[in-house]
């Protein structure tokens, strides 16, 4: 079954078409979400949210863009929303902890290890993912889609609904910022050793 047929069947509420869609795209959605939120459970929740949203709103898909572009857009937006909610919760928990005045230790998130990274590169990749958390959202999304999802600049521009020039600029700036952050980190680490 080709993609337009699958979409038509989905729009008619066909459950087997939905199963095919999930089978085909689940890893792409999960990997994108995981690269953004850097937490396996959160990425799993986002993946479920994305497919539920697709099922509920596939009738609004007009086919003006590629289906994968639409799916990437939903995934990125969901992941960013999820991060915002998580940050708000953290802030609220922090305020609560001040007023409670208890001695409970704050749980620090563990270092993120992407399951797709080769074993010998795990340490370097963990530093890169840590640095990725500290650059602006747009730069992070452009870098993630291009480097981790292997999307071309043109595809990234379509997903982010921006120009090719803007994507080139975002990726260049993301690399500069990542280098700065990593440089600071390594300088500190080398001098400590």
């Amino acid at each position: 079954m080709n993609q337009p047929e699958l979409i038509v069947q989905l729009q008619q509420g066909d459950e087997s078409a939905f199963k095919k869609l999930v089978d085909e795209w689940q890893d792409m959605v999960y990997n994108t979400a995981l690269s953004i939120v850097q937490d396996e459970d959160d990425a799993d929740d986002i993946t479920q949210d994305v497919f539920i949203q697709v099922y509920q709103s596939v009738s609004s898909f007009k086919g003006e863009s590629k289906f994968s572009t639409w799916l990437y857009r939903i995934t990125v937006n969901r992941a960013l929303d999820h991060e915002k909610k998580k940050k708000t919760k953290k802030r609220f928990a922090f305020v609560q902890s001040i007023f409670r005045n208890n001695d409970e230790e704050q749980v620090q998130p563990a270092e993120f290890n992407h399951p797709g990274v080769q074993l010998e590169k795990k340490e370097s990749a963990a530093e890169l993912f840590n640095a990725l958390k500290r650059i602006p959202d747009k730069q992070r999304i452009a870098f993630t889609l291009h480097k981790l999802e292997g999307q071309s600049y043109q595809e990234v521009a379509e997903i982010m609904n921006t120009s090719l020039y803007a994507v080139e600029s975002l990726i260049a700036r993301s690399k500069t910022n990542l280098k700065k952050i990593l440089s600071g980190y390594y300088e500190k680490n080398i001098s400590e050793q």
């Binding site: 959605v29 890169l128 990593l182």
Partner: peptide
């Protein structure tokens, strides 16, 4: 060198697989 290694560490990254029984 370390920075270059970190930036290149995701070049050959394979896609993470979704957890089983997602549907």
């Amino acid at each position: 060198k370390l920075i270059d290694e970190a930036l290149a560490s995701v070049e050959s990254l394979s896609r993470a697989e979704a957890k089983p029984f997602l549907l």
